[in-house]
Computed example of a mutant assay.
Amino acid sequence: MKRLKIEMIHDVVCSWCPVGYQNLRQALTNMRGEIEAQWYFLPFELNPDMPAEGQEIEQHLMERYGWSAEKQKLYRANLVKTAEDAGLIYDFSKRTHYYNTAAAHRLLHWAESLDRQVVVHEALIAHYFAGGMDVGSQVQLIALLDSLGLDAEKAKKEMSSMLFTQQLQRKYDRVKNLALGSVPAFIFNDDHLITGSNSVEFFQQQLLLLAKPPHNFELVARATA
């Protein structure tokens, strides 16, 4: 069985990141017995200057991209359908805001020390996209840890250390050096990069190439769908 390290570059509020994640996981499931994957997550903040209270999605898309209400409606319908096809629930009656995600990325980095990063990542997806969770709220993030049976007090203590901040900053610096224009992106075994929320079929094709000797693999970069 081929062992595969997967590092997903993402933002917690990125609409297309869970789609790419789900499709890649499905591709891995389709190849069960051939590839054993270990997941890690690298931070990419789409809106690092987002205020603590966040911003309404409609207002943000209008101000940043000049999207009309009609264009947003069409975009949202396509997004919800694509998410449904990937087995996700996007409820815009609850998911009304984009939030600052720095604290959520800190939480994911801490969870990695316990090998619980996948559990926390999937919980953030479910609570934000289906439930509208304020992922910038320390109170709500700590409550999430409690709901997962993780030691919230230990998390708060360890996340306040200088060493923790330095470790996380190295992840930010690594992502910055890649000069990505969008997320999601996936790094396989430290040196193969694929970008975009691609289809299950596309990911499975690339996994088949990855399972072969390195000289048979071609680096693929795709724009986010």
Rank of each mutant, 00 (worst) to 15 (best):
I142C: 09
I142K: 09
A103I: 03
P184W: 00
I187C: 02
L145Q: 04
A111F: 04
L180N: 12
A126N: 11
I125C: 03
V139G: 00
Y90G: 08
L88V: 10
E158G: 07
L178D: 07
A130V: 09
N100I: 08
L141W: 06
Y90L: 13
L150F: 11
A86G: 09
K154F: 00
Q169F: 11
K157I: 02
Q166W: 06
P184F: 01
E84N: 14
V175H: 02
D191Y: 08
K176G: 11
L124F: 03
S147Q: 13
Y90R: 10
A103F: 03
G136M: 04
L88Y: 09
Y128Q: 05
A86C: 10
H127I: 04
Q167Y: 01
D146P: 00
S93L: 09
D115Q: 14
Q167T: 12
W110R: 06
E158K: 06
F92Y: 15
L163I: 12
V119R: 03
L163E: 15
G131R: 09
H192P: 03
A111N: 07
L141P: 01
G149N: 10
V120R: 02
S93C: 02
N177S: 15
G181P: 04
T96W: 02
N189A: 10
L124N: 07
A123V: 01
S93M: 02
Y172S: 13
A130P: 01
F164T: 08
A155F: 09
S160E: 14
Q166P: 01
S113Y: 11
L178E: 12
G132F: 06
L180I: 09
K157S: 13
S147Y: 03
E158M: 07
Y99I: 07
R174M: 12
L148S: 08
A179P: 00
K154Y: 00
K171T: 11
T96C: 07
A152S: 15
R106M: 12
A104P: 02
S137K: 01
L107G: 01
A126S: 10
S160M: 00
F186P: 04
A152N: 08
Y98F: 15
L108D: 07
Y128S: 02
L107D: 03
S182M: 03
T101F: 06
Q167N: 11
E112G: 13
D91I: 12
R170F: 00
S137Q: 07
H121N: 15
D151V: 02
V119C: 06
N189F: 10
Q140G: 03
T165S: 14
S147I: 00
D190M: 06
D173L: 11
A86M: 07
L124P: 00
